[in-house]
């Protein structure tokens, strides 16, 4: 049920993709997305797909796991596809009756849009699957470091993010527990109208919020008693270092984007 949420899930491993610096992976995802949105032809989509497929193959993440991540988006993908098929104007009419006209261009656009969403999600999922949340926020903080010059609280933001990520599984577990406890007292979440069901959530939400505040309080005390006082003078247990493979991966990413841009310029 709730445990099936795969968002932010991390599959530990020791492949070249896992070992890449988180900054590299974040930059690669940005390059990947840029390439994806520049791509307009079969060729360029092919290049993007090959790039992703290679990364997936090296990371040894099961394709099944990636598709599982796409499952919740199924309806969005479906609607996008249908709307694009129906509302794209084109010349080559394949089918026409009543108000519905389906054109070759429509189908082409729909296929591209669906591919785009799927690739976008799979690409970002590959990053979260192969990078621990801690490493990810660490990388993000380092990438955004220059913004500190203009007083953006980068460290605080990334600390908040890692704490939030850290507590997602805890809160899910707690929700499950509270739900079971209330069910044991005969609470009914499955029947009744909208108002009744919304009311039925109260016995879950109140303890959940009370618990979240209590945890936040405890965490703050624990952090303070270990002398946490923000960014100043803080050193890291794991210092991020770029290596040769990071440079290689980044060059590949840049080449992908450059290639797709060149193809787009030549109208392919």
């Amino acid at each position: 049920m709730l445990k099936d949420i795969t968002l932010g899930q991390y599959f530990p491993g020791n492949t070249p993709v896992h070992r890449l610096d988180p900054r590299t992976k974040i930059l690669l995802v940005i390059l990947f997305i840029a390439a994806l949105f520049t791509a307009k032809s079969y060729f360029s989509y092919g290049a993007v797909i090959v790039f992703l497929a290679l990364s997936v193959a090296i990371s040894k993440i099961h394709v099944k796991a990636l598709f599982k991540g796409l499952k919740p988006l199924f309806i969005i993908i479906l609607i996008t596809g249908i709307l694009n098929v129906l509302y794209t104007k084109g010349e080559t009419v394949l089918l026409s009756f009543w108000v519905i006209t389906i054109t070759l261009e429509g189908i082409r656009t729909a296929v591209f849009m669906i591919l785009r969403i799927m690739l976008l999600v799979s690409g970002t999922f590959l990053m979260t699957y192969t990078t621990s949340p801690i490493a990810l926020t660490d990388g993000l903080e380092r990438l955004l470091n220059p913004l500190k010059k203009i007083r953006v609280p980068v460290h605080e933001l990334s600390m908040m993010m890692s704490i939030a990520l850290r507590f997602i599984p805890t809160l899910i577990e707690e929700t499950d527990k509270i739900m079971s406890a209330q069910k044991a007292r005969g609470a009914d979440f499955e029947t009744g109208g909208l108002v009744k069901r919304a009311k039925a959530l109260l016995p879950i939400l109140v303890p959940l919020f009370v618990g979240a505040f209590r945890r936040a309080d405890e965490l703050a005390t624990a952090m303070e008693s270990r002398c946490y006082h923000g960014d100043k003078g803080r050193t890291r247990m794991k210092v991020l270092r770029m290596t040769g493979s990071d440079a290689f991966a980044l060059i590949l990413g840049v080449l992908l984007l450059a290639g797709v841009i060149v193809l787009a310029v030549f109208g392919l």
């Binding site: 406890a181 016995p203 879950i204 109140v206 303890p207 009370v210 618990g211």
Partner: peptide, 8 residues
């Protein structure tokens, strides 16, 4: 720890 399920 049933004390964490009180809500009323």
């Amino acid at each position: 720890y049933p004390e964490y399920q009180l809500f009323e």
